[in-house]
Design a protein around this nucleic acid. Structure first.
Lengths: 153, 153
DNA sequence: CGCTTGCTTGGAGTGCACTCCAACGTTCTA
DNA sequence: TAGAACGTTGGAGTGCACTCCAAGCAAGCG
Protein backbone atom coordinates (compact mmCIF):
# COMPACT_ATOMS: atom_id res chain seq x y z
CA UNK A 1 0.00 0.00 0.00
CA UNK A 2 2.81 2.27 0.89
CA UNK A 3 5.03 0.96 -1.86
CA UNK A 4 6.19 3.71 -4.11
CA UNK A 5 5.19 2.88 -7.64
CA UNK A 6 8.20 3.02 -9.84
CA UNK A 7 7.57 5.55 -12.53
CA UNK A 8 7.67 3.64 -15.79
CA UNK A 9 10.92 4.81 -17.27
CA UNK A 10 10.49 5.36 -20.99
CA UNK A 11 12.99 3.72 -23.23
CA UNK A 12 15.65 6.32 -23.62
CA UNK A 13 16.26 5.72 -27.27
CA UNK A 14 13.88 8.01 -29.09
CA UNK A 15 11.85 5.71 -31.26
CA UNK A 16 8.89 7.91 -32.02
CA UNK A 17 10.24 10.03 -34.85
CA UNK A 18 8.36 8.08 -37.50
CA UNK A 19 5.62 6.24 -35.63
CA UNK A 20 3.10 9.07 -35.21
CA UNK A 21 1.98 11.68 -37.75
CA UNK A 22 4.43 14.45 -37.05
CA UNK A 23 2.64 17.06 -39.15
CA UNK A 24 -1.00 17.20 -40.26
CA UNK A 25 0.08 18.60 -43.63
CA UNK A 26 3.14 17.88 -45.75
CA UNK A 27 5.84 20.52 -46.10
CA UNK A 28 4.90 22.94 -48.89
CA UNK A 29 1.21 22.97 -47.96
CA UNK A 30 1.88 23.83 -44.33
CA UNK A 31 -0.01 27.06 -43.72
CA UNK A 32 -2.06 26.77 -40.53
CA UNK A 33 -4.36 29.44 -39.08
CA UNK A 34 -4.00 30.43 -35.49
CA UNK A 35 -7.05 28.42 -34.41
CA UNK A 36 -5.71 25.31 -36.12
CA UNK A 37 -2.42 25.70 -34.30
CA UNK A 38 -4.31 26.33 -31.09
CA UNK A 39 -6.12 23.01 -31.49
CA UNK A 40 -2.94 21.19 -32.47
CA UNK A 41 -0.70 22.62 -29.77
CA UNK A 42 -3.11 22.93 -26.89
CA UNK A 43 -2.10 26.58 -26.46
CA UNK A 44 -4.79 29.26 -26.77
CA UNK A 45 -4.73 31.74 -29.65
CA UNK A 46 -4.11 34.41 -27.02
CA UNK A 47 -1.05 32.61 -25.80
CA UNK A 48 0.26 32.05 -29.32
CA UNK A 49 0.06 35.79 -30.07
CA UNK A 50 1.63 36.58 -26.73
CA UNK A 51 4.49 34.12 -27.35
CA UNK A 52 5.20 35.91 -30.62
CA UNK A 53 5.08 39.35 -28.99
CA UNK A 54 7.59 38.45 -26.27
CA UNK A 55 9.97 36.80 -28.72
CA UNK A 56 9.32 33.19 -27.77
CA UNK A 57 8.18 32.47 -31.35
CA UNK A 58 10.23 33.41 -34.41
CA UNK A 59 8.19 35.92 -36.43
CA UNK A 60 5.31 34.03 -37.97
CA UNK A 61 4.53 34.24 -41.66
CA UNK A 62 1.45 36.29 -42.69
CA UNK A 63 -1.20 35.97 -45.39
CA UNK A 64 -1.55 38.85 -47.89
CA UNK A 65 -4.10 40.40 -45.50
CA UNK A 66 -1.89 40.11 -42.45
CA UNK A 67 -3.31 37.01 -40.78
CA UNK A 68 -0.86 34.55 -39.27
CA UNK A 69 0.01 31.41 -41.20
CA UNK A 70 2.00 28.92 -39.14
CA UNK A 71 4.31 26.30 -40.69
CA UNK A 72 5.33 22.77 -39.73
CA UNK A 73 8.54 24.27 -38.38
CA UNK A 74 6.49 26.53 -36.11
CA UNK A 75 4.59 23.48 -34.91
CA UNK A 76 7.86 21.73 -34.05
CA UNK A 77 9.12 24.75 -32.18
CA UNK A 78 5.87 25.01 -30.21
CA UNK A 79 6.06 21.35 -29.29
CA UNK A 80 9.57 21.86 -27.95
CA UNK A 81 8.59 25.03 -26.11
CA UNK A 82 5.69 23.18 -24.51
CA UNK A 83 8.12 20.54 -23.27
CA UNK A 84 10.34 23.23 -21.84
CA UNK A 85 7.30 24.74 -20.07
CA UNK A 86 6.60 21.35 -18.52
CA UNK A 87 10.06 21.30 -17.02
CA UNK A 88 9.03 24.39 -15.06
CA UNK A 89 11.47 26.64 -16.88
CA UNK A 90 10.38 30.28 -16.57
CA UNK A 91 9.19 31.97 -19.76
CA UNK A 92 12.02 34.50 -19.52
CA UNK A 93 14.58 31.67 -19.78
CA UNK A 94 12.76 30.18 -22.74
CA UNK A 95 12.91 33.58 -24.43
CA UNK A 96 16.66 33.61 -23.73
CA UNK A 97 16.96 30.21 -25.42
CA UNK A 98 14.93 31.44 -28.40
CA UNK A 99 17.30 34.42 -28.72
CA UNK A 100 20.28 32.08 -28.74
CA UNK A 101 18.67 30.05 -31.51
CA UNK A 102 18.13 33.24 -33.55
CA UNK A 103 21.78 34.21 -33.08
CA UNK A 104 22.97 31.10 -34.90
CA UNK A 105 25.26 28.14 -34.43
CA UNK A 106 27.92 29.99 -32.49
CA UNK A 107 25.60 29.83 -29.47
CA UNK A 108 25.56 26.02 -29.31
CA UNK A 109 27.60 26.01 -26.11
CA UNK A 110 25.36 28.48 -24.33
CA UNK A 111 22.27 26.56 -25.40
CA UNK A 112 23.72 23.28 -24.16
CA UNK A 113 24.54 24.87 -20.81
CA UNK A 114 21.02 26.27 -20.51
CA UNK A 115 19.49 22.88 -21.17
CA UNK A 116 21.89 21.16 -18.77
CA UNK A 117 20.93 23.57 -16.00
CA UNK A 118 17.29 22.86 -16.78
CA UNK A 119 18.01 19.16 -16.61
CA UNK A 120 19.56 19.56 -13.16
CA UNK A 121 16.50 21.51 -12.03
CA UNK A 122 14.23 18.74 -13.27
CA UNK A 123 16.22 16.10 -11.39
CA UNK A 124 16.05 18.21 -8.22
CA UNK A 125 12.32 18.68 -8.61
CA UNK A 126 11.77 14.96 -9.13
CA UNK A 127 13.67 14.22 -5.93
CA UNK A 128 11.53 16.74 -4.06
CA UNK A 129 8.38 15.13 -5.38
CA UNK A 130 9.67 11.71 -4.37
CA UNK A 131 10.14 13.04 -0.84
CA UNK A 132 6.64 14.45 -0.68
CA UNK A 133 5.33 11.07 -1.76
CA UNK A 134 6.78 9.48 1.38
CA UNK A 135 5.04 12.04 3.60
CA UNK A 136 1.78 11.73 1.69
CA UNK A 137 1.82 7.92 1.97
CA UNK A 138 2.55 8.14 5.66
CA UNK A 139 -0.52 10.32 6.24
CA UNK A 140 -2.73 8.32 3.90
CA UNK A 141 -1.82 5.16 5.79
CA UNK A 142 -2.70 6.88 9.03
CA UNK A 143 -6.19 7.70 7.78
CA UNK A 144 -6.62 4.24 6.27
CA UNK A 145 -5.66 2.66 9.62
CA UNK A 146 -8.10 4.94 11.45
CA UNK A 147 -10.86 3.86 9.09
CA UNK A 148 -10.10 0.16 9.63
CA UNK A 149 -10.07 0.67 13.40
CA UNK A 150 -13.45 2.38 13.35
CA UNK A 151 -14.92 -0.29 11.08
CA UNK A 152 -13.87 -2.98 13.57
CA UNK A 153 -15.55 -1.10 16.41
CA UNK B 1 25.47 9.98 -21.35
CA UNK B 2 21.83 9.83 -22.21
CA UNK B 3 21.06 7.34 -19.51
CA UNK B 4 18.36 8.56 -17.22
CA UNK B 5 19.67 8.54 -13.71
CA UNK B 6 17.33 6.60 -11.54
CA UNK B 7 16.10 8.86 -8.81
CA UNK B 8 17.30 7.33 -5.57
CA UNK B 9 14.12 5.97 -4.09
CA UNK B 10 14.08 6.69 -0.39
CA UNK B 11 13.41 3.78 1.91
CA UNK B 12 9.69 3.92 2.36
CA UNK B 13 9.69 3.08 6.04
CA UNK B 14 9.94 6.40 7.83
CA UNK B 15 13.02 6.08 9.97
CA UNK B 16 13.69 9.72 10.74
CA UNK B 17 11.30 10.27 13.60
CA UNK B 18 14.03 10.06 16.19
CA UNK B 19 17.28 10.55 14.35
CA UNK B 20 17.23 14.33 13.99
CA UNK B 21 16.31 16.97 16.54
CA UNK B 22 12.61 17.32 15.87
CA UNK B 23 12.17 20.43 18.00
CA UNK B 24 14.77 22.98 19.11
CA UNK B 25 13.05 23.25 22.50
CA UNK B 26 11.28 20.62 24.59
CA UNK B 27 7.51 20.74 24.96
CA UNK B 28 6.57 23.13 27.73
CA UNK B 29 9.27 25.65 26.87
CA UNK B 30 8.21 25.88 23.25
CA UNK B 31 7.41 29.54 22.66
CA UNK B 32 9.11 30.73 19.48
CA UNK B 33 9.03 34.26 18.07
CA UNK B 34 8.07 34.80 14.47
CA UNK B 35 11.67 35.36 13.38
CA UNK B 36 12.79 32.13 15.06
CA UNK B 37 10.07 30.24 13.24
CA UNK B 38 11.03 32.00 10.03
CA UNK B 39 14.62 30.78 10.42
CA UNK B 40 13.49 27.26 11.37
CA UNK B 41 10.86 26.86 8.68
CA UNK B 42 12.41 28.76 5.80
CA UNK B 43 9.21 30.76 5.40
CA UNK B 44 9.39 34.56 5.75
CA UNK B 45 7.67 36.32 8.66
CA UNK B 46 5.39 37.90 6.06
CA UNK B 47 4.37 34.51 4.81
CA UNK B 48 3.78 33.17 8.33
CA UNK B 49 1.43 36.06 9.13
CA UNK B 50 -0.27 35.64 5.80
CA UNK B 51 -0.74 31.88 6.36
CA UNK B 52 -2.44 32.69 9.64
CA UNK B 53 -4.67 35.33 8.06
CA UNK B 54 -5.96 33.02 5.34
CA UNK B 55 -6.57 30.15 7.75
CA UNK B 56 -3.68 27.95 6.75
CA UNK B 57 -2.34 28.13 10.32
CA UNK B 58 -4.47 27.42 13.40
CA UNK B 59 -4.65 30.63 15.44
CA UNK B 60 -1.24 31.14 16.97
CA UNK B 61 -0.79 31.78 20.67
CA UNK B 62 0.09 35.36 21.72
CA UNK B 63 2.25 36.88 24.44
CA UNK B 64 0.54 39.20 26.95
CA UNK B 65 1.39 42.11 24.59
CA UNK B 66 -0.02 40.43 21.53
CA UNK B 67 3.13 39.12 19.85
CA UNK B 68 2.98 35.68 18.31
CA UNK B 69 4.46 32.76 20.22
CA UNK B 70 4.65 29.60 18.12
CA UNK B 71 4.72 26.09 19.62
CA UNK B 72 6.33 22.79 18.62
CA UNK B 73 2.95 21.75 17.28
CA UNK B 74 2.93 24.83 15.04
CA UNK B 75 6.40 23.87 13.79
CA UNK B 76 5.15 20.38 12.91
CA UNK B 77 2.18 21.81 11.06
CA UNK B 78 4.39 24.19 9.11
CA UNK B 79 6.74 21.36 8.15
CA UNK B 80 3.78 19.40 6.81
CA UNK B 81 2.37 22.42 5.01
CA UNK B 82 5.75 23.03 3.38
CA UNK B 83 5.74 19.46 2.12
CA UNK B 84 2.27 19.96 0.70
CA UNK B 85 3.50 23.14 -1.05
CA UNK B 86 6.30 21.13 -2.61
CA UNK B 87 3.75 18.78 -4.12
CA UNK B 88 2.43 21.78 -6.08
CA UNK B 89 -0.88 21.77 -4.22
CA UNK B 90 -2.52 25.20 -4.49
CA UNK B 91 -2.79 27.22 -1.28
CA UNK B 92 -6.58 27.17 -1.51
CA UNK B 93 -6.56 23.37 -1.28
CA UNK B 94 -4.21 23.44 1.67
CA UNK B 95 -6.61 25.84 3.40
CA UNK B 96 -9.40 23.36 2.68
CA UNK B 97 -7.32 20.62 4.31
CA UNK B 98 -6.65 22.87 7.34
CA UNK B 99 -10.39 23.48 7.67
CA UNK B 100 -11.03 19.74 7.65
CA UNK B 101 -8.46 19.29 10.43
CA UNK B 102 -10.20 21.99 12.49
CA UNK B 103 -13.55 20.25 12.01
CA UNK B 104 -12.33 17.13 13.79
CA UNK B 105 -12.03 13.41 13.29
CA UNK B 106 -15.25 13.00 11.35
CA UNK B 107 -13.44 14.48 8.34
CA UNK B 108 -10.83 11.71 8.14
CA UNK B 109 -12.34 10.34 4.93
CA UNK B 110 -12.36 13.69 3.19
CA UNK B 111 -8.78 14.35 4.26
CA UNK B 112 -7.63 10.97 2.98
CA UNK B 113 -9.33 11.61 -0.35
CA UNK B 114 -7.68 15.02 -0.64
CA UNK B 115 -4.25 13.54 0.00
CA UNK B 116 -4.87 10.68 -2.43
CA UNK B 117 -5.80 13.14 -5.17
CA UNK B 118 -2.63 15.05 -4.39
CA UNK B 119 -0.66 11.83 -4.59
CA UNK B 120 -2.09 11.12 -8.03
CA UNK B 121 -1.16 14.63 -9.14
CA UNK B 122 2.40 14.11 -7.92
CA UNK B 123 2.71 10.84 -9.83
CA UNK B 124 1.41 12.54 -12.97
CA UNK B 125 3.84 15.42 -12.58
CA UNK B 126 6.75 13.02 -12.09
CA UNK B 127 5.84 11.22 -15.28
CA UNK B 128 5.71 14.55 -17.12
CA UNK B 129 9.13 15.47 -15.81
CA UNK B 130 10.48 12.09 -16.84
CA UNK B 131 9.21 12.78 -20.36
CA UNK B 132 10.85 16.19 -20.50
CA UNK B 133 14.09 14.58 -19.44
CA UNK B 134 14.08 12.45 -22.60
CA UNK B 135 13.63 15.53 -24.81
CA UNK B 136 16.25 17.47 -22.89
CA UNK B 137 18.78 14.65 -23.19
CA UNK B 138 18.09 14.35 -26.89
CA UNK B 139 18.88 18.03 -27.43
CA UNK B 140 21.87 18.02 -25.10
CA UNK B 141 23.32 15.09 -27.01
CA UNK B 142 22.81 16.97 -30.25
CA UNK B 143 24.83 19.93 -28.98
CA UNK B 144 27.49 17.65 -27.50
CA UNK B 145 27.84 15.87 -30.86
CA UNK B 146 28.11 19.19 -32.67
CA UNK B 147 30.88 20.25 -30.32
CA UNK B 148 32.79 16.99 -30.86
CA UNK B 149 32.44 17.36 -34.62
CA UNK B 150 33.77 20.92 -34.58
CA UNK B 151 36.69 19.91 -32.34
CA UNK B 152 37.72 17.24 -34.84
CA UNK B 153 37.68 19.79 -37.64
C1' DC C 1 -24.90 39.78 -50.80
C1' DG C 2 -25.40 38.99 -46.23
C1' DC C 3 -24.30 36.34 -42.32
C1' DT C 4 -21.52 34.04 -39.20
C1' DT C 5 -17.33 32.94 -37.63
C1' DG C 6 -12.51 34.03 -37.36
C1' DC C 7 -8.47 37.15 -37.01
C1' DT C 8 -6.14 41.69 -35.91
C1' DT C 9 -4.22 45.11 -32.43
C1' DG C 10 -2.66 47.56 -28.00
C1' DG C 11 -3.66 47.71 -23.71
C1' DA C 12 -6.07 46.45 -19.62
C1' DG C 13 -7.46 42.79 -16.38
C1' DT C 14 -6.97 38.28 -13.73
C1' DG C 15 -5.41 34.89 -10.32
C1' DC C 16 -1.95 33.21 -7.62
C1' DA C 17 1.35 33.50 -3.98
C1' DC C 18 3.47 36.15 -1.91
C1' DT C 19 5.93 40.77 -0.53
C1' DC C 20 6.19 45.20 1.13
C1' DC C 21 4.79 49.60 3.47
C1' DA C 22 3.86 53.00 7.09
C1' DA C 23 3.27 53.93 11.52
C1' DC C 24 3.46 52.38 15.46
C1' DG C 25 4.41 49.31 19.98
C1' DT C 26 7.85 45.77 22.29
C1' DT C 27 12.09 43.55 23.72
C1' DC C 28 16.86 43.18 24.23
C1' DT C 29 21.66 44.77 25.00
C1' DA C 30 25.09 48.07 26.73
C1' DT D 1 17.69 54.45 29.96
C1' DA D 2 18.90 54.94 25.27
C1' DG D 3 19.04 52.85 21.00
C1' DA D 4 18.75 49.07 17.94
C1' DA D 5 16.33 45.36 16.52
C1' DC D 6 12.12 43.09 16.36
C1' DG D 7 6.99 42.79 16.35
C1' DT D 8 2.05 44.49 15.10
C1' DT D 9 -1.74 45.77 11.61
C1' DG D 10 -4.59 46.58 7.21
C1' DG D 11 -4.00 47.38 2.92
C1' DA D 12 -1.42 48.16 -1.17
C1' DG D 13 2.08 46.45 -4.48
C1' DT D 14 4.80 42.85 -7.19
C1' DG D 15 5.96 39.33 -10.62
C1' DC D 16 4.53 35.77 -13.33
C1' DA D 17 1.92 33.79 -16.98
C1' DC D 18 -1.47 34.32 -19.04
C1' DT D 19 -6.41 36.06 -20.37
C1' DC D 20 -9.61 39.14 -21.99
C1' DC D 21 -11.59 43.29 -24.34
C1' DA D 22 -13.22 46.48 -27.93
C1' DA D 23 -13.42 47.78 -32.38
C1' DG D 24 -12.64 46.72 -36.61
C1' DC D 25 -11.18 43.89 -40.87
C1' DA D 26 -11.17 39.02 -43.29
C1' DA D 27 -12.87 34.48 -44.84
C1' DG D 28 -16.13 30.96 -46.01
C1' DC D 29 -20.93 29.58 -47.15
C1' DG D 30 -25.79 29.49 -49.25
Amino acid sequence: MTVIESIPVKSTVVDLCKTRPLHPRPDGQDRYTISEVSALSGLTAHTLRWYERIGLMPHVDRSHTGQRRFTNKDLDWLAFVSKLRLTGMPVADMVRYAELVREGEHTFDARQELLEQTRRDVITRMAELQDTLAVLDHKIDFYADARRASERA
